[in-house]
Design a protein around this nucleic acid. Structure first.
Length: 279
DNA sequence: ATGGGTACCTGTCTGC
DNA sequence: TGCAGACAGGTACCCA
């Protein structure tokens, strides 16, 4: 499920309500991708200072336990393919897909994740330990100033893989997943099969603009809800209704009327219009 | 360094 | 109706 827009929508839907909350209890269900990495008691009594996002990861900054010096840390959360977070004031009993609960003074934060590719990992610092290892090597944030055509062009040089796979890899730019990679390449008019190193600087400019536009628009409409994505209040997104190519194999291109094609790249579906998108 | 493939896990949909 | 197979929003890790 969740690409950058869904993760950001999730963050926006809970950060104001959760900031300042005190953790009262932790419940761990079936194993997620990685173990929590600490005893539940390590978290209890801490205050939630802030919720930040890095790529598709969320970082819940946690203050020190009362009376314990230099004890700060945080939780790194990932929603995997099928995860979502919900914040509620009345705690219902956990369902079969609810694998992580944080009971707080401001409500129950619950991670629901049928496929269990998601994770909640304790780390004493965002830049070191478990979190540091997972966040190391991530590319630039697409909605920040560092994502430029010059950077994209430089980083694509010497890459023979298709530009779509280079976008997905996450070491150049983060947060662009399978839906938005197809959508951005459509907007930029670039054939997803084009080798990375063959993308000119001028086309990198269009691609940077397209990635930014697609992600910003998706955040604005609450992300894409294909199946199970919900924000922390249970609201679904609407971007799936305005996708130009993703999931539209065999349907007419909204620009030229030609037929949208589906191909497989790196075991993932790619959708594109062969007429509007050129190498 | 790059690239290709596998693995993790469960639900839903399609076609026979 | 049953069942096998394909497919699904991600990404760390192993091996060439």
């Amino acid at each position: 499920m969740p690409e950058l827009p869904e993760v950001e929508v999730t963050r926006l839907s809970l950060v104001d309500r959760l900031r300042g909350a005190e953790i009262a209890g932790v419940r761990v269900g079936k194993p997620l991708r990685w173990p929590l990495g600490c005893a539940p008691s390590t978290l209890v009594g801490r205050r939630l200072l802030d919720v930040n996002r890095r790529g598709k990861y969320l970082w819940f900054a946690l203050g020190a336990r009362p009376g314990v010096a230099a004890d700060d840390g945080g939780l790194l959360l990932h929603l995997g393919m099928s995860g979502s977070l919900n914040l509620s004031t009345h705690a219902e009993p956990p369902g079969p897909w609810d694998h992580f609960d944080l009971a707080t003074s401001h409500g129950l934060l619950r991670l629901t994740d049928p496929r269990r590719f998601g994770a909640a990992v304790w780390s004493s610092s965002r830049d070191e330990g478990a979190a540091g290892k997972l966040l190391a090597g991530l590319g630039v944030e697409p909605l920040e100033a560092g994502f430029t055509a010059a950077l994209l062009h430089a980083r694509l040089r010497g890459r023979r893989v298709a530009v779509k796979q280079a976008l997905l890899a996450g070491d150049i730019v983060v947060g662009v997943g399978n839906i938005y990679a197809s959508e951005a390449l459509f907007l930029a008019g670039i054939d997803p099969r084009t080798p990375g190193h063959r993308i000119s600087l001028a086309r990198c400019e269009r691609l940077v603009d397209a990635v930014r536009a697609v992600l910003a628009r998706a955040v604005a409409v609450g992300g894409s809800t294909l199946r199970d994505f919900r924000d922390a209040h249970g609201l679904g997104g609407a971007f799936q209704n305005e996708a130009r190519v993703y999931g539209r194999e065999g349907e007419p291109c909204t620009t030229c009327g030609g037929t949208v094609r589906r191909i497989v790249q790196g075991q993932r579906s790619t959708y594109f219009c062969p007429h509007c998108q050129r190498r």
